[in-house]
């Protein structure tokens, strides 16, 4: 799996990556508007989408904790809350190996075959949004907030 330089700002390697919006393939429920196309470290043939923030309430974890043959991360499946179908998994406790390899710090992983993905555009709609650009947009939003806070005094 692909996980963890879990800093507030994203690792430079991932900044150029596109942001994808995901929908549930079964019921069209929007699952997340900030995912990254990723590959499974253990099996590079498997395409995945991952996100850093818990995509609740669109999805929720289901079933028991388990581990796979490829690593010892403790994981739980997650399902779309609208239709209940499993759409991915959540890494509850990453293993040491995965933490050491280069990863994106995302613990919420969506399967490709259970989701529909479309690249997200930037605010102006002029270009595909990248993770780096999204961070900047959010920062700009935050500073707008501060400004408006300043007014209220």
């Amino acid at each position: 799996m692909e996980t963890a330089c879990h800093e507030p700002t994203i690792h430079p390697y991932f900044r150029h990556k596109d942001v994808y919006v995901l929908w549930c393939v079964y019921c069209d429920n929007e699952l997340s508007d900030r995912t990254m196309k990723a590959i499974l470290l253990a099996d590079i043939k498997v395409d995945l989408y991952s996100t850093d923030l818990p995509p609740k309430p669109a999805v929720d974890v289901i079933g028991r904790y388990y581990t796979t043959d490829t690593c010892s991360c403790q994981i739980r499946d997650m399902a779309c809350t609208k239709c209940g179908n499993p759409v991915g998994y959540h890494v509850v406790l990453p293993c040491a190996n995965c933490l050491e390899s280069c990863n994106n710090g995302h613990f919420w992983i969506f399967h490709q075959h259970t989701t529909k993905a479309i690249q997200r555009l930037n605010r102006e709609g002029s270009n595909v949004l990248t993770w780096g650009a999204m961070e900047k947009e959010l920062e700009a939003e935050r500073s707008i907030c501060y400004d408006s806070d300043d007014v209220c005094r």
């Binding site: 309430p57 929720d60 289901i62 399902a79 809350t81 239709c83 209940g84």
Partner: peptide, 10 residues
């Protein structure tokens, strides 16, 4: 009540 508390009824 569903088996997953936050899920819809099927």
């Amino acid at each position: 009540l569903t088996w997953g508390p936050s899920y819809n009824f099927s």
